[in-house]
Design a protein around this nucleic acid. Sequence first.
DNA 1: ATCCTACGTTAGACAGAGTTCAGGTCAAGA
DNA 2: TCTTGACCTGAACTCTGTCTAACGTAGGAT
Lengths: 136, 136
Amino acid sequence: MSDLVERLRGRGWRMTSQRRVVAEVLNGDHVHLTADEVHARAARLLPEISRATVYNTLGELVSLGEVIEVATDGRAKRYDPNAHRPHQHLVCSACGTVRDVHPAGDPLADLPPEERFGFTVSAVEVTYRGLCPSCA
Amino acid sequence: MSDLVERLRGRGWRMTSQRRVVAEVLNGDHVHLTADEVHARAARLLPEISRATVYNTLGELVSLGEVIEVATDGRAKRYDPNAHRPHQHLVCSACGTVRDVHPAGDPLADLPPEERFGFTVSAVEVTYRGLCPSCA
DNA sequence: ATCCTACGTTAGACAGAGTTCAGGTCAAGA
DNA sequence: TCTTGACCTGAACTCTGTCTAACGTAGGAT
């Protein structure tokens, strides 16, 4: 994720302290923070950062394909920096914890043409639900 | 869906005009209304019905397993009365339209034990995304 | 090194979806 | 018919997220 800053600069991104801090907060594996959590952590490094900037920056990172938006429940979206490798999500129904998982098979191939109703299908999301070890 | 009223009464549900109207509105195949749409249609039959009652009733139907909640995106949740037959959803990224689909294969079987991280996996949701014929 | 300016940031108002609450209403059993 | 606890209502409220107008600044131009 540290070369992310370089990739973004190469794409003409103006680098600001706010954007750097948001990228820093999203660093790591199995990170699935909500926008508010990103804002809270970013504010520990840069107290004046505003909510609007966090939302703007996250939206830009999503458009650039550097971060994936995950809607695990009806609540706030979560942001997943692990956009390099395709993966799915395993969500604990009790505490909301999210894990990245890598199932076998290709769900897109499982949808036959006659079940597509003329849609141009471009993506598929799989969400596994259950109880994590601590909640079971 | 008409025997739904009987099933609910059998479970000790107090039957009111409001609940009857919400159940009526949800009748049919490929129905995926938002709470607001349910409220609008219910209000045509029972003008004084309140939003809170619609939300309460939908929530109860979901807990009872009679209706499935579909979180299509950042938008409003949709409510799917087709809870009897297992199925997945195909969502238009542009207009939010939802279709029920029946893919081949079992996504649960595609998640090997070493990818479950000790979770007790009990369910899986698959959401296909793309453009519907009108939006393409 | 400094200046310019277009791009970025900020605070706060706003909007959509959903929840809560106090008080009035009514389904259904006695 | 009476009673009562479950149900309904409307309004205020919370939570997420977006928009706007004024201000700040990164980085190329000079």
